[in-house]
Write a protein that binds this DNA or RNA. Structure first.
Lengths: 231, 231
DNA sequence: TAGTTCAATATGTAATACTTAATAGAAATT
DNA sequence: AATTTCTATTAAGTATTACATATTGAACTA
């Protein structure tokens, strides 16, 4: 009685719930009608009736979009489309403890890639205040006595770079990724942070003071070399 | 009759719904109990009873986590935690038409940063096949007669670089971002793509064939210069 | 032992009712 | 007439109940 098994090869029928479908319908609706932030979208009951599903299902779909910051709802006023924070979705998922080792490693690589490539944004947007801030961090680092303090300087230094880049999305990206890297801290704590590689933080600042954008990428590469070698 | 306006400064009371609270509870629950992918989580009714809310509300919260790929549910079997795709959340939000101009620009900058910083991953993970693939693209590009074909080569070339980097998360990031850049295509179509800057695709391939990792970042910078200058 | 039937179970969906907050419009006050 | 206050309405938030559906595992049959 064994039935041809080939029939079942495709078995895992991508099962979509009503809520999934409603969600997709809403996305399409928003896109096709080119609804803009601030514009209202139909009432829950209207959607439910239009799609022939229970209000319950509609609410599940809306709840998802609301979580992503795509819509906001006020009682009576109904719901309006909002300009979502593009990095919101990332923030909702990324929590160090539920990420597997492999992904964390990939995110760390991503960070290295970003920092090496950051140069042009930095040179175009650096200000006196930023450079002074970096100076201060470098000095704090030199005076630091404890390892904890040194690591804090390390984090501050690199965070300041992202700030200097003047790209809100990029900064946000970094802020979200940051906690993931804490697992690296143990390893890092064994290194000398003022000069992770042969290029020190002070060296990097010096380059930033200059207008030599060409020098930046390879300087940062050398600074991060111990990490890069670890790939 | 004007009342002290300071009273209303904090007015926008961060209103959280029950679903929001349940969602947070679930996140905490998962983290604190360090539940791993594959492990089961409580039944809907159990959660509802434990938190003293209706099953409806619980389902909204679960629906959100399910969308992000954090949990999966099967009838009867209950729900299990899954290893989420970290980039899923990003994918759900990023749709070119609902992103405002400013954010799109920031994402484009992000792309430039990535490509300049990509070098070390490329040199560590390049294979003969990858290099051959790039060669083929360059050749196709030279032979191309239409602008459409040339743009396709441009996209293929840079996509292949991300592929070469051997970082699944990074590649996925790029794939998600890609559609956002289509708006740049119009502008790009006016440029000569074999040599966007003074450095051509062929030049980049030559560098990749060599083992001169130092040369890569500035070569890519020059290649992307027209875009960088546009910042 | 193998295969079938069947009950138990947990999610998915529907329907209904009620609560709550915000709004608009009517009514009342100045 | 202009402003404030009440009131009804509206739409989202929550709760409850009921039923559908698919999956599991145990009981049953051949």
């Amino acid at each position: 009685m064994s039935i041809d098994k080939d029939l079942f090869k495709l078995k895992p029928i991508a099962y979509t719930t009503m809520a999934d479908q409603v969600e997709n319908h809403l996305r399409e609706y928003i896109i096709k009608r080119s609804i803009k932030p601030g514009d209202p979208i139909p009432k829950e009951t209207e959607i439910a009736q239009a799609l022939g599903v229970s209000r319950n299902v509609v609410r599940e779909a809306l709840s998802r979009l609301r979580m992503l910051g795509m819509i906001e709802s006020r009682k009576k006023r109904g719901m309006i489309l909002t300009q979502p924070d593009v990095m919101k979705g990332l923030e909702l998922i990324i929590h160090p403890t539920i990420l597997d080792e492999n992904v964390r490693k990939q995110l760390f690589e991503l960070r290295l890639v970003l920092e090496v490539g950051l140069g042009d944004l930095l040179f175009r947007r650096k200000t006196e205040e930023h450079l002074k801030k970096l100076d201060a961090i470098v000095e704090r680092e030199h005076k630091a006595t404890t390892q904890i303090e040194r690591i804090r300087c390390e984090v501050d230094f690199h965070s300041t770079l992202y700030e200097m880049a003047g790209n809100e999305t990029l900064k946000r990206f970094q802020d979200i990724l940051m906690p993931v890297f804490e697992y690296v801290v143990e390893y890092e704590s064994k290194l000398d942070h003022t000069s992770v590689g042969s290029v020190t933080h002070a060296d990097l600042v010096k380059i930033l003071y200059s207008n030599n954008a060409e020098a930046y990428p390879n300087a940062m590469r050398k600074h991060l070399m111990p990490h890069l070698d670890h790939l």
